[in-house]
């Protein structure tokens, strides 16, 4: 079984976010980049599946040279090889087009992605890639098993869950619970240095949208404390001041 795992390099959760003076991009100085946590879950599940069934795991990222540490980390965790499409992602359509192109060239049985990235929070790539390849997709999955050429997944729906079945090839997006991320060991870290990493050129696609500026939320005004023995005071404020009840 050949699995492609899409990974993105994102700022560590605990980092403070700041932007360049024109507010158009993230100020990357001093920011620690990590594998997007959901992509890490997807990668781990891909490794578990190929360890059981046999096969190969390739990771792909669309990004410039600065994303290589994150690719090496994925290789250290256990991916067999990697593809880096050398371009700064512009919008989801651009990124998905690059991944779809690589997928067409290599015929994967399964494309696994994290369900969203914690920087842009879009959840767009998996479904766009699936649509470009005209194959089925199951998104926001907490469980994934494969039996022959058919996958079974448990996906989240409002107020519950749904168990679905679908033939391969397909795209699946992973959410919390599909697998517990692994920490690379010394051997993995050593071997990651020599695993193949192909750098490819991006295909050109039209620009459909772009971020024209970021800004930060207004800080909330300081908290109004209510004495513990006056809960009715809180209710009154929620009614008259916040107008939420």
């Amino acid at each position: 079984m050949k699995i492609l795992v899409c990974i993105s390099s994102v700022p560590d959760t605990t980092t403070k976010i700041n932007f360049t003076p024109d507010n158009k991009s993230l100020l990357t100085q001093g920011v620690q980049f990590i594998i997007n946590p959901y992509d890490e879950i997807a990668l781990t599940r891909a490794l578990e599946l190929t360890e059981k069934e046999g096969g190969k795991v390739t990771v792909i990222t669309v990004g410039d040279h600065s994303t290589e540490p994150v690719i090496r980390k994925a290789l250290a965790v256990g991916a067999n090889d990697a593809i880096r499409v050398d371009a700064v992602p512009r919008d989801a359509f651009f990124t998905a087009s690059q991944i779809a192109k690589a997928a067409t060239e290599n015929n994967y049985d399964l494309i696994l992605c994290g369900h969203e990235s914690i920087d842009y929070n879009g959840a767009r790539i998996p479904s766009m890639v699936a649509e470009m390849l005209r194959i089925p997709s199951v998104t926001i999955c907490k469980k994934l098993t494969i039996e022959g050429k058919v996958l079974t997944a448990e996906r989240e729906i409002e107020g519950g869950k749904e168990v679905v079945e679908c033939p391969l090839p397909a795209v699946v997006s992973a959410s919390e619970g599909m697998a517990a991320p692994r920490i690379p060991n010394m051997r993995g870290i050593m071997s990651a240095r020599t695993k193949p990493l192909a750098v490819t050129q991006a295909v050109d696609v039209p620009k459909l949208s772009e971020v024209i500026g970021y800004d930060k939320p207004q800080p909330r005004s300081t908290v109004q404390l209510i004495p513990a023995d006056q809960p009715e005071k809180l209710i009154e404020l929620l009614h008259t001041q916040a107008r939420v009840i």
Binding site: A92, H115, R124, S127, S173
Partner: peptide, 20 residues
Amino acid sequence: FSVKGMAPRVAVKLQAGFAD
């Protein structure tokens, strides 16, 4: 949850820009 898996496909089909 369902729309998150479907709207990006609509965008690709229509060659439309997408914001979520």
